[in-house]
Every structure is written in structure tokens, then in C-alpha cells.
Design a protein around this nucleic acid. Structure first.
Lengths: 135, 135, 135, 135
DNA sequence: GTGGTCTAGACCACC
DNA sequence: GTGGTCTAGACCACT
């Protein structure tokens, strides 16, 4: 699992971390039940502060994407993931809304937008780097 | 033009303001060339500090959505926007990526996602609140 | 004498006015002793406030470029223009300094900069629109 | 890096700050990748408000001269600048135009103007104050 | 009355 | 401790 961080970005490092781990799970590169590196290990690997990794893990746990065991360490949620709660749907709409508004304003038509979304959906769920999905 | 702000939200007020104005333009409730309220006026209307509105306007100007006109005050950009520049497409992808990844992880299928996007697109561009253009 | 103003510019209208009149004199389109339109006339011609034109004229007078007669109205200074005072040289350097610094930083070499300056010098002093220099 | 501000000048403090930092980079006194003082530190050093420094830094960041790095703080842009884009050339001409017009009007001949430009170019790019790079 | 600038003080998110 | 955000109040330049 390779993590790419942009230190100049205005999106917080812990958020970037969360996003990349979520993408990893969504793409199948991280399987349910699989172990994640320890806070200390990951922090030194990617060269960020312990607190930063810790915050990302804590939030991922709160949102139900991972489990934090005292002994086994950090593992990807094996018991089924959160699902499409009403809260999530609301959050999703609020996030999509400004992106779509700007796209409209720049003259993007509906088909192009949907095409873009489809492409990203397939790209993310296809999990290019890492093992082939078990045949 | 009605502005709805969520003071509890973690998204900055000036960003909420920007988004709502962009949505207003995208939906046709704000027409190109139309005047926007002055910084002071809008600030007292929505009950925030003058500088907060000023920051939103300044950023909107920098991104080309509005003009700050020496005589007419603040007006919606009458010439079109830059359009679908490569920079915009990259930004859009980076914004969409984590949203779609999380959707995948929560089990949303492609059709539902596209449906959601279509609905928002139509909702935003239909300009629901406000009078019909006088026939 | 045609005046072109940019209402969106962040440079004040009265400054734009001054610059254009100075350019007009430098280019020979306005001759020493020649009359300029009255404050009222010019203001209504270019669609700006009386005070704005008045401020431009007052400053031009202060700097010695024009004279304001109670009866003859406003005329281009016939008695010889200010000249290269030490104050002007200082001002000029302070204005050029940041422009040149930025040019250096963007990789413009000295020859290109000088070429640019020469071109502008010749362009401005050649006075394309208006009468031919008396043969 | 010594900053000299003129509190009486009509050019805004944040602009003076920007210009001096740009000159510092152009002259090699500030090297690409080098750290700049924090907003608070610089503000107290030069005796202005924190927000004034912040504004200068924010604008410099927007124009690509510096980066605001999540870990290292504020650093001089390590990658080069955009270069001589058409937008820059246009902006440069619009800035030079009134300066040159006024110079012509005051009787400065072309050679003297070019001499002045060359001198400033060399003065700025020679980086006078500061130690020689240790041999 | 408009936007632009500056100051001051406070809280928060991030690292 | 860092930058980011918000508030508040003041003065000025411009129109």
C-alpha cells in the first residue's frame, strides 16, 4: 500500500491519509480483516507526525472503516462496512453540490459529467496497483 | 437571492457564501451582469462580519465569477467563464475521487451514483426559487 | 483624443485618465498650448463623475503638465515641461524596481527587457493615431 | 533578509512586503526552497500586524512565488516560476507604458532610459547585501 | 456610500 | 507554534 501525500495541498494530511486508505479498501488493495501498519510504523514510513496518523486512524474507526484492537493492531473492518445511511447521503449531496454547480457554470453538460463520474468509479474500483483479484 | 448559512458547519462561512453564489449563477437566479449587494449590505443582511463577505467576493473575483466594477459595484461576470480548462478538470477529479471512493465502499452501485449526480445537476440548473422570468 | 478606460481595473480612473493624457502629450497627439475639453465636457463624454476628471486635471496641473486658466480653460503646458528632476528620477526607479525584479525572476534576460523598453518608447513617441507630424 | 518599509508611502504595506520579497528572490538573497519567517515572527520583527504579513504571503503564494508547506512553514518556491507567459508580458507592458510615457514627456531620451533599466537590472540581480556564498 | 487597507484580539485546526 | 478563520472598529481612496 503506497501512500502519496501532498504537503503543499490545503487539504489536511490526516484527511489525505484517510482518503487514500478508503480508496485502498474500495479498490480491493486492502482486504477486510487485513492488518494496517501501526501508527508509529506508518508515521515514520511517510514522514509525518504520530498525532497525524493517529487522528486519521481514530476518525476511520469512528466512521466504521477499520477496527483498532489492543493486540492485533489496526485491521480493515471485516464485519461489513457502514452502508448508505441517510447521514451519508446528505453529506454526499452537500459535497457534490458545489462541484456540480461549478461544472455547470463552466459549461460542462450532463453527459460529460456522468461520463467523468463513471470513469472515476471504474478506475477506483478496479484497483490497478497490487495483486490481481483472486481468480 | 436568499443565502442560507450553517454557522455550526466546519466549512468556513466565506466558502459557504462562495458556493451559494456560484450555485445562484449556475441556476440562473443571478444573471450575468446583474449587480450583487455591496459588501456591507450583504454582511448586515446575513449577520456576518464585513470582512467575511469581502473575502468571499475577493476570491470569487479571482476565480472569475464576478467583477468588482468601479462604478456599478459588484456584478456577476458578464463574459463567460474560462470553461473546461485542464486545470479545472484535474481539480474536479481530485474533488470527486474521495467522494466516489467512499460511495463505493459503502456499497453504492454505479447506477445509483449516476442517478444522484443527474438529479443534483438538474436540481441546480433548474433555478427553483425565484420568480419565473416575466413573459 | 480618444480615452479608453477600464472600469474593472484596480488602477483608479483618475490615474488612468492622467496616464492617457500624458501619453497623448508624449506622443504629440496633444500639442503644447492646445486646449483640453472642460471638466464637465470630458466627464460626460467618457461617462464618469465630475470629481474624477477634476482630480485628474488638478494633479496634472500640480505636476506641471497642464495649465488651468479661468477663461481659456484647460490647456497643455506651453512653457516647457517639468524635466528630469531628482524627485522624478527617484520615483521612476521605485516604480521600475518591482517590475524589473519580477521580470528577472521569470527568466527574462537583460536584452529582452531593453528590447521591450525600446519598443514601448518608440511606440509611444510615434503617436500613431492623429495627424502626421508636420512635414 | 532585511525588510525596509515606508509607512508614509501610499503604496500598501503588504505590497511593499511582496515587492521586497520578490526582489530578495530575484537577487538570490532568498534561495528556492529556503524557509521564510513565520507570519507572526515577521510581523513582530517589522512591527506590523500579523494580518498584513498574512495577506502578503497569501498573495505571493497565489502568484507562485512561495509555497505554504504544511510542515516546513513558508518556503520560497523551489520549482521555477511560470516564466514569460503572454499574460505576464501584457501586464508588464501595461505597467511600463505610463512610466515610459512620463519619461518621454520629461525629455528623457531612449539611451538614458535604457541605461537606467540596465543599471536597475544589474543592481537587483547582483544581490548586494548579504554574505558571499562561502567558497 | 463603495471597496481597500490596517490594526487588534480571539479561537481553532493542524502538526 | 503554525497558519486559517472570524469578529470588530477605524481610516482612507474613490466615485
Amino acid at each position: 500500500m503506497i501512500i502519496q501525500l501532498d504537503m503543499q495541498s490545503d487539504v489536511p494530511i490526516y484527511t489525505q491519509l484517510m482518503n487514500q486508505i478508503i480508496e485502498g479498501i474500495a479498490g480491493g488493495r486492502l482486504k477486510p480483516g487485513e492488518a494496517l501498519p501501526s501508527v508509529r510504523h506508518l508515521a515514520s514510513d511517510i514522514g509525518v507526525n504520530l498525532h497525524t496518523v493517529n487522528k486519521a486512524y481514530t476518525l476511520l474507526k469512528q466512521e466504521g472503516y477499520i477496527q483498532i484492537h489492543r493486540q492485533k493492531g489496526v485491521v480493515v473492518q471485516p464485519d461489513g462496512l457502514p452502508g448508505l445511511t441517510p447521514e451519508f447521503m446528505t453529506k454526499q449531496q452537500e459535497q457534490l453540490r458545489p462541484i456540480i454547480a461549478e461544472s455547470i457554470l463552466r459549461g460542462m453538460n450532463l453527459d460529460d459529467l456522468l461520463h467523468q463520474a463513471r470513469q472515476l468509479y471504474e478506475q477506483i474500483s478496479s484497483a490497478p496497483p497490487g495483486k490481481e483479484p483472486t481468480p
